[in-house]
Write a protein that binds this DNA or RNA. Sequence first.
DNA 1: GCCAGTTCTCTCGACATCAAGACATATCAT
DNA 2: ATGATATGTCTTGATGTCGAGAGAACTGGC
Lengths: 162, 162
Amino acid sequence: MEDEVDRLVAAWRAERPDLDVQPLHVLSRISRLARHLDRARRAVFAAHDLEPWEFDVLTALRRAGRPYQLSPGRLLRATLVTSGTMTNRIDRLEAAGLVRRLPDPTDKRGVLVRLTDKGRTRVDAAFADLLAREHDILAGLSPAERDTLAGLLRTLLAPFDL
Amino acid sequence: MEDEVDRLVAAWRAERPDLDVQPLHVLSRISRLARHLDRARRAVFAAHDLEPWEFDVLTALRRAGRPYQLSPGRLLRATLVTSGTMTNRIDRLEAAGLVRRLPDPTDKRGVLVRLTDKGRTRVDAAFADLLAREHDILAGLSPAERDTLAGLLRTLLAPFDL
DNA sequence: GCCAGTTCTCTCGACATCAAGACATATCAT
DNA sequence: ATGATATGTCTTGATGTCGAGAGAACTGGC
């Protein structure tokens, strides 16, 4: 069975027979899968009235454990956005009642962003649904295949995590 | 050896011991890898004075084969952007001298976007460099492992391509 | 103590994208 | 022919992000 990537590779081979386009078989599929995952995530979050960026911030706080609070600085490093973006995001999450801004008692420049009860409830429900959906996406693979896949991906990822 | 994703999974297990977070081992690694690939691509393109979006449009034209031309409509479907975005992109590529807009002789509404010689040279060089970089990224895997990985990814991707 | 350099959050302006719609041309059934 | 619908491209307005920098507070060496 031929898939989209096979057709892509075939088109390149026809146009650039001088090049080794093998890498596309792995890497183009990874990029495509990531796009599909983003779409699937977006659909799950929409059912909980959350945008992907809201989920990203809320899960960072949720993973921190009680009392579910982090500084804006730690949040922006956790979510890989700039400080201007994070200020905007916290503003909107605060307006939605999902987080609160508190003064940092140990640093007068600082602020702590804390998950509200409403925020915790919301993100917990969305995360459970997300995992259910991700489970479905992996349904085509046996447990052994999933382990193999995870291992190969880990090898590929290792050089970047340095 | 523990990687970032292992730590992420451990954090979730501590906070949500009720959930099966196994899917993250595969799917979170795919998303992370895609982000790293985007960064690597961006770096390669920068050496050729190209933005990722420019590369996307130019490669769509390049893959079409001689005379390297497509309508804006086909381009936007190939690159998954909206028509407003594509108009803007073609405007800028035309200003940069990498493509030209020609009237479509068979449809008076239509336009054909054609790669200039300068555009073809540029995208060919960038693509060769990209493949070299992607080859490096896969260096940690044996040829057999790459095949296994490509096969597993294809299985995961199949349900989306319907 | 004090000053230089660092860290923290927020503000501002520029920009690429999207969604919706405008406008012209094609296509098809009647 | 004619009208209705579809198609193709471009325009417009809103939005979220980034990059640069401002202002306040912390830190360490002297």
